[in-house]
Write a protein that binds this DNA or RNA. Structure first.
Length: 544
RNA sequence: GGGCCGGUAGCUCAGUGGUAGAGCAUCUGACUUUUAAUCAGGUGGUCGCGGGUUCGAUCCCCGCCCGGCUCACCA
């Protein structure tokens, strides 16, 4: 049989470059079906399977079931059943015969003559079903014989333990809820192909139950932060993601366009300047948990869109925030993992014991080479100049810290006192005007948070913006823009304030023992996939 | 962007300059407590794409696409 078919699982054909109508920038786009090189191939196995299952829809309907089902009342979720009955013995279950109604997706089938076993999965957890010809109606047994891996079903019966002791449902009623048309990944290895795991996260969730756990933990991390801040009187707000001026961080933005206003807008790189406008307006404690967008490289620690918690507390300073941060992280670790000591790779990260160092101390303490510097060295502009090619002593100090020390910060650590050059929005230290009242939190060699006493002197802020503009002149694409409305807000008088940002994705990496940020983001950014071709498969199958 | 590694059946993976392999899945048959069920038989491949070398390329060479790791950049 010859038909037009396209690759389904992996579209690895050339991505088409098309020129958009509005501008002349070339953008890669996923090709649409039928749009290029339709070629004839014999029917692939996968498509045969697809057609076969599509045809089975009619057989299921002929038995009186709706192939795409209807609402279904389950009495308990599978995770709840497993939790509740895990300690009950076979004898106890035989005596009680607990009656339950459950729903889930079929992941294994072992047919044995006139009976069989299946595992069905709900929320990443599995329960075994035992279907016996004698125990169900004739119609239900016919349905059972038509079931495919991946189908969604509902079942009712009583719980028991098999000879080998596995908690199972003795099925007395069976119903059909949704048809699967595509093969599911192998039962033993699951889905290993990282590309498919990220592109088709739904399939990853079906095949790899641990993934459910990762994202449940992520949700716990977020709700823990949210609850802790709310308990302390912080109000959750949402500020613009599309901004006509971008700021609040050192980063290059994404640009988008509003048609009616005919203006270019930037996707925000940080909510900071808007949150501080709210502080100026008298919302004394605010926080936002939302996405930031930075037009930069992708790595195991960077995704172009990432989730940041930012919070601001009026009348506080960075010392208060250090104490608060220690509490927040400790409680997040407890809420997310049940322990303040969290395994990460070969490491045990202790969020119950966060160390604190001044940046200059840290350079001396965590210097990874033999010629360990002294405190006099790290305060000496000459020494700094020799060890870095950065122009100013402050930039050099940070450069040296990041290159020689940052990776050594395995245990959760606060580094404070940052040079003024790299901190355009932070207040200067009262004793040392070359430094700011700022700190960052590190763990597993990774920056997870950044905080400072906010600069609220409008004239000093004006000078900092001008310093940034000079850096932009020199070619620094990440330097700040001048934001006059923000200056105006400061001119009304912003209370002394402490503010902090915490990278939710990175904290989640630590709490879920994930090596890559892509493992804690449901749909990480990937290049477009290209041809998929499934619409054509459906078209062909339904015309048969 | 640089370096390294990878892409072979739906999934997990072997493999070779000369007809393309296994397990699972799938199909047929047997089997009413199995569990990586078992047993017997069958189907299934543009070996990522394009070009080159060769009598012959999935294999060697070049280019490209997609992904991973890593460095750079960044949070």
């Amino acid at each position: 049989m010859e038909v037009a078919a396209y690759r389904l699982q992996r579209g690895r054909q050339t991505t088409l470059l098309v020129v958009s109508g509005n501008d002349d920038r070339k953008r890669p786009q996923a090709a649409h079906y039928n749009s290029c090189f339709p070629r004839s191939y014999s029917l692939s196995l996968e498509q045969e399977l697809f057609d076969q299952r599509f045809a089975r829809i009619r057989e299921i309907a002929a038995l009186g079931y709706r192939p795409y089902g209807q609402r279904f009342d389950f009495t308990e979720t599978i995770p709840a059943i497993l939790a509740r009955y895990t300690t009950q013995t076979a004898e106890e279950l035989d005596a009680a015969k607990p009656q339950v109604r459950i729903a889930g997706r079929i992941l294994t089938i072992r047919r044995m003559g006139k009976a069989g076993f299946m595992h069905i999965q709900q929320s990443g957890e599995r329960l075994q079903l035992y279907v016996k010809k004698d125990a169900v109606s004739e119609n239900e047994y016919k349905l059972y014989q038509l079931l495919d891996l991946g189908d969604v079903i509902g079942a009712e019966g009583y719980l028991f333990r098999t000879r080998t002791g596995e908690l199972s449902l003795h099925v007395e009623k069976l119903t059909f809820l949704s048809k699967n048309l595509l093969g599911i990944p192998e039962k033993y290895h699951g889905l290993e192909d990282v590309e498919i795991r990220y592109r088709q996260r739904y399939l990853d969730l079906i095949a790899n139950p641990d993934v459910h756990q990762v994202f449940q933990t992520r949700a716990k991390v977020i709700s823990s932060f949210r609850r802790q801040l709310q308990e302390r009187g912080f109000i959750e707000v949402e500020t613009p993601m599309m901004q006509s001026l971008y700021g609040g961080a050192a980063a290059r933005p994404f640009i988008t366009h509003h048609n009616t206003l005919d203006i270019d807008l930037y996707l925000r790189i940080a909510p900071e300047l808007y949150l501080k406008r709210l502080i100026s307006g008298g919302m004394e404690r605010v926080f936002e948990i939302n996405r930031n967008f930075r037009n930069e490289g992708i790595s195991t620690r960077h995704n172009p869109e990432f989730t940041m918690l930012e919070f601001y507390q009026s009348y506080a300073d960075y010392h208060d925030l250090m104490d608060l941060t220690v509490e927040l992280l400790k409680t997040v670790a407890l809420d997310a993992t049940g322990n303040t000591v969290v395994p990460y790779g070969d490491l045990q990260l202790d969020f119950g014991n966060v160390r604190r160092y001044k940046m200059r101390e840290a350079v001396c303490e965590f210097w990874k080479h033999a010629d360990r510097p002294t405190m006099d060295n790290v305060c000496d502009p000459e020494w700094l100049r020799i060890h870095s090619d950065k122009v100013t002593p402050g930039e050099a100090l940070v450069d040296i810290f990041e290159r020689h020390c940052e990776q050594a910060l395995i245990q959760p650590t606060i580094i404070h006192e940052y040079p003024v050059e790299v901190s355009p929005l932070a207040k200067q230290n009262a004793d040392d005007p070359t430094m700011t009242d700022r700190f960052e939190i590190y763990a597993a060699g990774m920056e997870i948070g950044n905080a400072f006493t906010e600069l609220n002197d409008p004239d000093e802020q004006r000078r900092r913006f001008e310093m940034q503009l000079a850096m932009k002149e020199r070619g620094d694409e990440e330097a700040h823009q001048m934001d006059e409305d923000y200056l105006r807000a400061l001119c009304y008088g912003m209370p002394p304030t402490g503010g902090e940002g915490i990278g939710i994705d990175r904290v989640t990496m630590l709490m879920t023992n994930s090596k890559s940020i892509r493992d804690v983001i449901l749909f990480p950014l990937l290049r477009p996939e290209g041809e998929i071709g499934i619409a054509q498969w459906l078209r062909e199958a339904s015309s048969k």
